[in-house]
Amino acid sequence: MNLLLLQPEDLGADSNHITLSDARAAHIRNVLRAATGDTLKIGLLNGLTGNAVITAMSDSGISLQFELHTPPPAKLPLTLLLALPRPKMARRIIRAATELGVAEIILLNSYRVEKSYWQSPLVGDETLHKAMQEGLEQAGDTLLPKLRRATRFKPFAEDELPSLLNDKLGLLAHPYSDQGPPQSVTQNCLLAIGPEGGFIPYECEKLIAAGLQSFSLGPRILKTETAVSSLIGRLFL
């Protein structure tokens, strides 16, 4: 945890003082091994970042005096269109995308996405919201990515995707494309990454017809978890 993330409901009448008694207090005590008088980096969810000084510590809680004054790091100009990963992998992938600064994540259905994945609690709102908050704490960020689901591929590709691509560069990561990746992307971008095994030919055709340009990183076929970090790093960082 590189940033202590406060929730809006944490703030009381005295907006510059707070006492924590939950997992964050345990982290301060047991992982950071902080003591009274130490300074921590702090941020308000979807708000500013700043610093906090530990004013008291006891078995019942940790008291902080804090000041919020600095905007969080800028998001990447990126919408990640991601075929829903296997539930056990989804949490790690969403957390990594948040750490890297993705502004919006759209989870997309695909032929190779098992129907049961959508019903798993591992891809439920609560689990993925917690994963995104962990990504924020790691990256020193406070702004949650927008997260939504597109559970029907064809209506999304035909009816929604073309309008989403207005003023955006549309990219489709596909291991069998003949084109290499663009370099140092600076404009708003939508990047589509398929499931394990990739999008099927029909889906690639629909995505390209909507305005995406396919490209490949080379002959190696990567797992989704590896592909997300590698592609974002290659294109933006």
Rank of each mutant, 00 (worst) to 15 (best):
residue 106 I to V: 13
residue 82 L to Y: 11
residue 41 K to C: 03
residue 71 P to M: 13
residue 31 V to M: 06
residue 177 S to N: 02
residue 164 L to W: 14
residue 114 E to M: 07
residue 192 A to K: 03
residue 1 M to N: 08
residue 94 I to H: 09
residue 201 P to E: 08
residue 222 L to F: 15
residue 178 D to K: 12
residue 127 T to K: 14
residue 16 N to V: 00
residue 69 H to I: 00
residue 156 F to E: 00
residue 90 A to D: 06
residue 41 K to R: 13
residue 214 S to V: 01
residue 210 A to I: 14
residue 183 Q to D: 05
residue 1 M to C: 05
residue 179 Q to M: 10
residue 159 D to Q: 15
residue 81 L to D: 04
residue 34 A to F: 03
residue 28 I to F: 00
residue 137 E to H: 03
residue 18 I to S: 01
residue 137 E to V: 01
residue 112 R to A: 12
residue 142 T to L: 01
residue 110 S to Y: 07
residue 30 N to T: 11
residue 163 S to H: 14
residue 152 R to T: 02
residue 156 F to I: 05
residue 225 E to P: 08
residue 72 P to K: 01
residue 33 R to F: 06
residue 93 I to P: 06
residue 103 A to N: 12
residue 54 I to T: 02
residue 155 P to F: 03
residue 148 R to C: 13
residue 93 I to E: 03
residue 88 K to C: 02
residue 64 L to W: 00
residue 171 L to A: 04
residue 113 V to G: 04
residue 210 A to D: 08
residue 13 A to T: 15
residue 235 L to N: 01
residue 155 P to Q: 06
residue 123 V to S: 12
residue 235 L to W: 07
residue 1 M to R: 06
residue 42 I to H: 02
residue 203 E to G: 07
residue 31 V to Q: 05
residue 169 L to G: 02
residue 14 D to V: 01
residue 2 N to R: 14
residue 174 H to C: 13
residue 74 A to G: 04
residue 67 E to Q: 13
residue 70 T to S: 11
residue 191 L to N: 00
residue 57 M to H: 07
residue 34 A to V: 06
residue 154 K to Q: 09
residue 179 Q to G: 05
residue 136 L to V: 05
residue 31 V to E: 09
residue 76 L to G: 02
residue 176 Y to N: 12
residue 35 A to S: 12
residue 136 L to I: 07
